[in-house]
Design a protein around this nucleic acid. Structure first.
Length: 357
DNA sequence: TAGGCCATCTGGTCCT
DNA sequence: AGGACCAGATGGCCTA
C-alpha cells in the first residue's frame, strides 16, 4: 500500500510516518491508515506538494531534518544562500500546528459536504419519484430539479396539464435513460404496467393510501373517489386542479439537446413564471444528523453504499439518442418497490417539508 | 473489467 | 490566522 503509493516518490514513507500522517484525523484509530489517506499520501507527497506554499519542497526537505535547529540548505551546507525572505522552518511545533489545522479543516470539509448532501437529499424528497433506496444520483437530482422547476413553471403559465406527455418530457429532458424511465414510470406514461403492479403491491393497490400511510400521488392513481391526499393548497394550482387543459403543449426539444450522456446545460431555461414565493422553507431534522459524528471505519463506504442504490446512468440509451426517447422505450429500469410517491406533492412539500436547499 | 458514483483528503484561493 | 469554498486526486463499491 504505502510502497505502491509512494513508488514514484522515492523514499518518503519515512518522512510520512515521521510526520504522523498515518494517524491523522482519527481516521486510523486502529493504527491502520484509511484508504483515503493512502491515496492522498501518494498524491500529496508525490506530486502536488511541489507547488504547496504551506509545505514547499524545501520545507519538506527541512522536515527530514530531525534536528529542528539546524539550518541546512537544500543542497547542503555549501549551497548558496537563498535570496528573498527566509522561509520559516518546519519545526516540530509547526508540523503539529499544521497537522492540527489540517485535521480541523478536514473535519470542516466533511461537515460541509454532509450539509451539501443533506440539502441534496432534501431536494430529492421534493422531486418526483423519491425513493429512499433508489436514490437519484447527485447530477440526476440537479437535472431533474431544474426540469421540475421548468415544467411547473410551464404548467402555471400555459395551463399545460401535468398529466400530459409534455410535462413528463420536460421532466426527463436531459436525464439519463434510467432516470427518465423512472420518472416516466412514476407518472404512468412510460411502459410501466409491471412497475405499477409493483407499486400496487407495495401501496396496497391504486389509490389505497401510500407507502407508510402516506398519500399516493393522484397523478399516479388518478382514480375517482380517491381520498384526498393531505396536500397543501398550492399544488392544486400547480398540478392537480388544472382546468381548461388544452392537451400537450410540449415543444419538442431540439434534436441535439439530448444527444449526449451528460448533456450540457441547454440554455438558461429561465422559468417563465417566478414561483420563488412558494418556497417557505422549514427545516426538518435530517436523517444524516445522527451521522454527524464521523466515526471513520474501514468499511464505511461499503456501509453507505450498501444501503443506497443509485440508478446507474450507464445503461445505454440517451434521451433523444439513437435509441429514441426513453419514455417510449421498453423499460430497462424497474422502479424500486418502495418508491414513495408521497413526496411528489410539489407545493406542500415546498412549503412544509422542503429543507434548506 | 470498465465505467459511474461516491466520500474523503488535500492544497489553493478568497474573505473576514 | 482561520474559515469557507473549490477542484483535483484517490480508492472503494456497485453494476452492466
Amino acid at each position: 500500500m504505502m510502497t505502491k503509493t509512494f513508488g514514484k516518490s522515492g523514499d518518503v514513507s519515512d518522512l510520512v510516518s515521521s510526520l504522523g500522517w498515518l494517524d491523522e484525523d482519527g481516521s486510523s484509530q486502529d493504527g491502520e491508515e484509511s484508504p483515503e489517506m493512502r491515496g492522498h499520501h501518494g498524491l500529496t507527497m508525490g506530486g502536488r506538494m511541489h507547488s504547496c506554499t504551506e509545505m514547499g519542497s524545501e520545507d519538506m526537505e527541512e522536515e527530514e531534518e530531525e534536528d529542528d535547529e539546524e539550518e541546512i540548505g537544500p543542497d547542503g551546507e555549501n549551497a548558496p544562500k537563498r535570496r528573498g525572505p527566509k522561509k520559516k522552518k518546519m519545526t516540530k511545533a509547526r508540523q503539529e500546528r499544521f497537522r492540527a489545522r489540517r485535521v480541523k479543516a478536514n473535519a470542516r470539509e466533511r461537515s460541509r459536504m454532509h450539509g451539501l448532501n443533506d440539502a441534496l437529499d432534501n431536494l430529492r424528497r421534493v422531486m418526483p419519484c423519491y425513493s429512499k433506496t433508489q436514490k437519484l444520483s447527485k447530477i440526476e437530482t440537479l437535472r431533474l430539479a431544474r426540469n421540475y422547476i421548468w415544467a411547473l413553471s410551464e404548467v402555471l403559465e400555459s395551463g399545460q396539464s401535468p398529466e400530459s406527455h409534455g410535462f413528463v418530457e420536460m421532466l426527463c429532458k436531459g436525464l439519463s435513460q434510467p432516470t427518465s424511465n423512472l420518472v416516466a414510470g412514476c407518472l404512468q406514461l412510460g411502459p410501466s404496467p409491471m412497475v405499477l403492479n409493483k407499486l400496487e403491491d407495495k401501496c396496497g393497490g391504486p389509490g389505497v393510501g401510500g407507502v407508510g400511510g402516506q398519500a399516493v400521488h393522484p397523478l399516479i392513481y388518478p382514480s375517482p373517489g380517491l381520498p384526498s391526499p393531505p396536500y397543501g393548497s398550492l399544488e392544486a394550482s400547480h398540478l392537480l386542479h388544472m382546468k381548461g387543459f388544452k392537451g400537450p403543449v410540449y415543444d419538442n426539444p431540439s434534436p441535439n439537446e439530448c444527444s449526449s450522456g451528460t448533456p450540457p446545460y441547454d440554455g438558461p431555461l429561465t422559468p417563465p413564471l417566478s414561483i420563488s414565493g412558494n418556497f417557505a422553507l422549514k427545516q426538518e431534522p435530517s436523517p444524516h444528523d445522527s451521522e454527524r459524528n464521523y466515526t471513520p471505519h474501514p468499511g464505511h463506504h461499503a456501509h453507505y453504499l450498501s444501503s443506497h442504490h443509485y440508478p446507474t446512468s450507464t445503461a445505454g440509451g440517451l434521451p433523444g439518442g439513437p435509441q429514441g426517447h426513453p419514455l417510449f422505450q421498453a423499460s430497462r429500469y424497474e422502479l424500486p418497490l418502495d418508491v414513495a410517491f408521497d413526496s411528489f406533492t410539489p407545493s406542500h412539500l415546498l412549503t412544509s417539508q422542503m429543507g434548506t436547499i
